[in-house]
Amino acid sequence: MKRAYMRSLTFLVFSGILKVCELCPSVRASRATKFVAEGGSLQLSCEVQHCGLSGWTGGWVFQESDSLKFTSLIPSERIGTSNSSSTANSTHLSLHIHNINQSDAGAYKCSINWPQKITSSGHVTYVNVTAAAADSSGRSLSHRVLLCFGALMCFSVVLGFVWCLTRDRHPPPPPVPPRTSFAAGAKPKKELVYAEVAMNKSRRQNDPPKQASEPTVYSSVRFS
Rank of each mutant, 00 (worst) to 15 (best):
143 H>K: 13
53 L>Y: 03
76 S>L: 03
66 D>K: 08
159 L>R: 13
47 E>P: 00
153 M>K: 06
118 I>A: 10
76 S>E: 03
14 F>Q: 09
1 M>Q: 07
170 H>I: 14
84 S>G: 02
127 V>L: 08
177 P>E: 10
108 Y>K: 04
112 I>E: 01
74 I>Y: 02
216 T>A: 14
205 Q>A: 09
123 H>W: 03
13 V>W: 05
68 L>C: 04
192 L>V: 13
62 F>E: 03
16 G>N: 07
213 S>A: 13
85 S>E: 02
27 V>P: 00
87 T>R: 01
123 H>V: 01
164 C>K: 11
70 F>K: 04
181 S>E: 01
212 A>R: 08
22 E>Y: 11
214 E>C: 09
58 G>H: 02
61 V>W: 04
180 T>F: 06
218 Y>E: 15
162 V>Q: 06
53 L>K: 06
57 T>P: 00
209 P>Q: 09
212 A>P: 04
18 L>D: 02
147 L>K: 11
51 C>Y: 01
166 T>L: 14
78 R>T: 08
199 M>N: 11
67 S>G: 05
160 G>Y: 05
160 G>P: 01
72 S>N: 07
123 H>D: 15
20 V>A: 14
172 P>K: 09
200 N>V: 14
111 S>A: 07
32 A>Y: 02
224 S>V: 13
61 V>S: 06
41 S>V: 06
138 G>H: 09
177 P>W: 02
40 G>S: 12
70 F>N: 04
22 E>P: 00
136 S>M: 15
135 D>K: 07
9 L>N: 10
58 G>V: 06
80 G>K: 04
5 Y>L: 15
2 K>G: 10
115 P>A: 08
177 P>C: 05
154 C>E: 07
5 Y>C: 13
64 E>I: 00
212 A>Y: 00
73 L>P: 01
83 N>L: 07
35 F>G: 03
170 H>E: 09
99 N>S: 15
55 G>T: 06
205 Q>E: 10
72 S>R: 09
17 I>G: 01
6 M>P: 00
3 R>E: 13
180 T>A: 07
139 R>E: 14
198 A>M: 11
207 D>K: 05
204 R>Y: 12
195 A>N: 13
97 I>D: 01
24 C>T: 04
20 V>T: 08
219 S>P: 03
81 T>M: 09
193 V>R: 11
188 P>R: 11
53 L>Q: 10
15 S>T: 12
89 N>E: 12
88 A>L: 07
9 L>D: 05
56 W>A: 03
67 S>L: 07
133 A>P: 04
135 D>L: 06
150 G>L: 14
41 S>G: 07
164 C>Q: 10
154 C>T: 12
176 V>Q: 08
42 L>T: 08
182 F>R: 12
74 I>M: 10
10 T>V: 09
54 S>I: 08
81 T>N: 01
4 A>P: 00
77 E>R: 05
173 P>T: 09
150 G>S: 15
52 G>W: 02
193 V>E: 11
